[in-house]
Amino acid sequence: TQTTHELTIPNNLIGCIIGRQGANINEIRQMSGAQIKIANPVEGSSGRQVTITGSAASISLAQYLINARLSSE
């Protein structure tokens, strides 16, 4: 079954999640098997909405990979 998880990434950290020309986010997508959508910046908001869709296992793996990127910054 597909589930969806949403999280907010601070604007100053979204770059390390996306990577150069989307390299990091594509790697996270491939490794986790989850669909990951990053919302466009919202004016006045300090973060970007990230939506992860997939199986429970792929979502938790995607979250783990995202958190690993954030903590390495």
Rank of each mutant, 00 (worst) to 15 (best):
T1Q: 03
T1W: 05
Q2Y: 14
T4S: 12
T4L: 06
H5V: 15
H5Q: 15
H5C: 14
E6M: 14
L7D: 02
L7E: 05
T8L: 11
I9M: 05
I9V: 14
I9G: 01
N11E: 11
N11D: 15
L13H: 10
L13I: 10
I14N: 01
I14Y: 00
I14H: 03
C16V: 09
C16D: 10
C16K: 14
I18G: 03
G19N: 02
G19F: 02
G19E: 04
R20I: 10
Q21K: 14
G22L: 04
A23T: 14
A23Y: 05
N24C: 07
I25N: 00
N26S: 12
N26D: 09
E27K: 13
E27P: 02
I28N: 01
I28A: 02
R29Q: 14
Q30E: 12
M31F: 09
S32V: 01
S32R: 01
G33C: 02
G33L: 02
G33V: 00
A34S: 08
Q35E: 10
I36D: 01
I36W: 00
K37V: 11
I38H: 00
A39E: 08
A39P: 04
P41E: 12
V42I: 12
E43D: 08
S45E: 12
S45V: 11
S46Y: 08
S46Q: 10
Q49C: 12
Q49R: 13
V50Q: 00
V50M: 07
V50C: 08
T51D: 03
I52H: 00
G54K: 01
S55R: 05
A56F: 13
A57R: 13
A57W: 06
S58A: 13
S58P: 03
S58L: 01
S58D: 12
S60P: 02
S60M: 09
L61S: 14
L61F: 10
L61T: 15
A62D: 02
Q63I: 14
Y64D: 15
Y64V: 15
L65I: 03
L65S: 03
I66T: 03
N67A: 08
N67F: 13
A68W: 03
A68I: 05
R69W: 03
R69A: 10
R69M: 04
L70E: 02
S71V: 08
S71R: 10
S71W: 07
E73V: 15
